[in-house]
Amino acid sequence: MTIAVGIDIAAKTFDMVIRRSGKPSKPSTFKQTPAGHAAVIKQLKKLKPRSIVMEATGIYYLDLAVAIAEAGLPVSVINPKSFRHFCALKLNGTKTDGVDAALLAEYGERMAPRLWTPPRDLYLKLRDVGRQINRLTHSRTQAKNRLHALTSTHMTLALLIEDEQEAITMLDRRIDRLTQAALELIEQDQTLSRHMQNLCAAKGVGQATAIAVLAELMVLPDSLKAPQVSRYAGLDIRLTQSGSSVNRPARLSKAGNAYLRSALYMPAMCAVRHDPRAKAFYDALVSRGKKKMQAQCAVMRKYLTGMWACIKDETAFDSSQLFSEEHMKA
Rank of each mutant, 00 (worst) to 15 (best):
Arg120Cys: 08
Gly130Ile: 08
Arg251Glu: 01
Pro249His: 12
Glu325Tyr: 04
Gln190Leu: 11
Ala258Ser: 09
Ser51Lys: 14
Asp222Ile: 04
Lys144Pro: 00
Ala233Asp: 03
Asp163His: 15
Ser25Asn: 11
Leu136Glu: 06
Gly72Ile: 07
Leu157Phe: 11
Ser82Met: 10
Lys81Ser: 13
Thr315Pro: 00
Asp121Cys: 14
Thr169Tyr: 05
His327Cys: 08
Glu109Lys: 14
Gly256Leu: 09
Met300Val: 02
Arg127Ile: 08
Ser25Gly: 11
Lys291Trp: 05
Ala295Lys: 05
Ile78Ser: 03
Ala212Cys: 02
Lys23Trp: 03
Gly130Glu: 03
Ala226Val: 01
Asn79Asp: 12
Pro34His: 11
Ala10Trp: 14
Tyr303Gln: 15
Lys312Leu: 00
Gln43Tyr: 11
Gly6Ile: 04
Gly58Ser: 09
Arg238Asp: 02
Ser319Ala: 13
Ile211Ala: 06
Gly72Leu: 10
Val53Gln: 13
Glu166Trp: 05
Arg127Cys: 02
Val53Asn: 14
Arg110Trp: 07
Lys302Leu: 00
Ala284Val: 07
Ser28Pro: 01
Met293Lys: 15
Gly6Phe: 05
Ile161Gln: 11
Leu47Met: 06
Leu73Thr: 07
Asn145Phe: 05
Ala35Val: 13
Pro118Phe: 11
Cys297Gly: 02
Arg174Phe: 11
Lys46Tyr: 05
Phe323Gln: 00
Ser324Ile: 02
Pro221Glu: 08
Ser262His: 12
Leu304Cys: 06
Val53Ser: 10
Ser244Gly: 06
Val299Leu: 11
Arg120Ser: 06
Ser242Cys: 14
Gln165Ile: 09
Val229Ser: 05
Ile133Ala: 01
Gly36Glu: 12
Leu285Arg: 06
Ser320His: 14
Gly204Trp: 07
Asp121Gln: 13
His154Trp: 12
Ser25Thr: 13
Thr191Trp: 01
Leu159Thr: 12
Glu106Thr: 07
Glu166Leu: 12
Gln321Pro: 00
Val75Met: 07
Ile161Tyr: 08
Tyr232Ala: 05
Ala280Asn: 04
Tyr259Glu: 12
Ala39Met: 14
Phe30Tyr: 15
Ile18Arg: 13
Asp236Trp: 09
Lys203Pro: 02
Ser262Pro: 02
Glu326Tyr: 11
Tyr259Ile: 09
Ala69Arg: 08
Ala201Tyr: 05
Ile7Gly: 12
Pro49His: 01
Pro227Val: 00
His274Val: 00
Glu55Gln: 15
Gln197Ala: 07
Ser262Ala: 15
Lys12Cys: 01
Met54Gln: 06
Glu106Met: 08
Lys292Val: 04
Cys200Arg: 15
Leu260Cys: 05
Lys45Thr: 08
Val219Leu: 04
Ala105Leu: 01
Gln142Pro: 00
